[in-house]
Structures are given as structure tokens and as C-alpha cells.
Amino acid sequence: MKTLILFSLLSISSPLFASVAQFDLIKDKSPVEFEAKGNPSLLSIKGLKGKGGGTLKFNNNSLSGNIIVALNDFDTDLDTRNEHMKEKYLETGKPGFDQAILKIDSVILPKDFSEKGNRIDKFPIEGILVLHGKEKKISCLTDLLIQGNDLNGKTNFKIKLSDFGIEIPSFAGITIEDEIVINAQFKGSTGKQ
């Protein structure tokens, strides 16, 4: 009987893992930022206002999905720099270059995922990042929490511009380092609320 009650409680608190659930990411609640270093002067340049869209699908203990970010949304606080970034370096005017896509394909979550209340902390999730017409395997350290119909999480990873065929940006005498840090938060919903 105790086992039955316990099972019932677990089922109520984490209904998801009995089956399949798909979360649509809410763009306005899924900010994506990047941070670049510029030299000389050790300048920290942040690209803000990126928004993560797409879907994440949980199938028992595996995770799949796409996170899509429109590159034209990024704002570095200087209009001219934004213009250079988008037109000269990211070349967002070219077909398919206007967005970055993180493809996650059947990543197996830790066995204790559901035992920990459908939560993972700093778990490395591997995916393929499509950017500037190139693809590159990356690993993202990810926090994730599923509560009822809501998904909340955050992730960060580093990329090298040169891996994606992006010319090293230089603007007004400041040259950007090759390595860029990406930070993203995401919030999703199954839409069943």
C-alpha cells in the first residue's frame, strides 16, 4: 500500500516521465546572451535581447529538440557595432544565416532525473550548433527543472568563431577574441495548462 501511495505521489508531482511530453519554448521568457572579449582594453561586449524559441521533447529519459535563436535580435548597445556584427560578420542577410539552431538528438538524461524531482544540475548535454552555414558539435552545461506543465532551465557553452567560418570581428580598433561565451535561460510549456 505504501508503495502505491508513494508511486501515486510521484506520478502527481512528475507526471511527465510516464510518457512523452513536448515543451514549446516561450521566446519572451527565454533570453539568450553572448559575451565577447575585445582587445586592447579588455572590453567586455555583451549581446543581449536574443530569444530562444523551438521545442524540447522528453521521451522517458531522453531529450530531443531544437532551440532556435534569431541572430538579428541581438543588441550590443551600439548601433554601428550591431550593423557590423550582423551584416559583415554573421552575414544574416544570407539565406539560413539569420538564425542559430541548437539541435539536440536523443540525449540520455541521468538515471536519477525523475528521482531528483525531474531536475538536473550542470549536466553536460551534447548537441549540434548550426551557425553561419556550418555545424559543430558542442557540449552545454545545463540546469533543468520540470514542474507540472512547465519547463525551466539555463545553459551555457563556449564557441569559437573560427569553427563556424566567422571572420574575427574588428570594430573601431577593438578586435574580438575568437572564443565567445553563450548564456541562455529557457522557459517552456506543454500548453496543457
Binding site: P40, S41, L42, L43, S44, D77, L78, D79, T80, R81, F171, A172, G173, I174
Partner: peptide, 27 residues
């Protein structure tokens, strides 16, 4: 944080870098 973003001098003031001129316009 560092003056050298905008100025040649490490302690700031005087000659503007090209980046400093951009900031004078945009910020």
C-alpha cells in the same frame, strides 16, 4: 571599466581612440 576603451592614455583623458569616438556618438 577601463579608460583605454575610449582613450589612448591608460588613466583616461585626452586623445580618443576610434572606439571612443564611436561611443561619443552612440552613448
Amino acid at each position: 571599466f577601463n579608460c583605454t576603451s575610449c582613450h589612448l592614455s591608460p588613466a583616461g583623458g585626452g586623445a580618443l581612440t576610434l572606439y571612443g569616438r564611436e561611443l561619443s556618438k552612440e552613448l
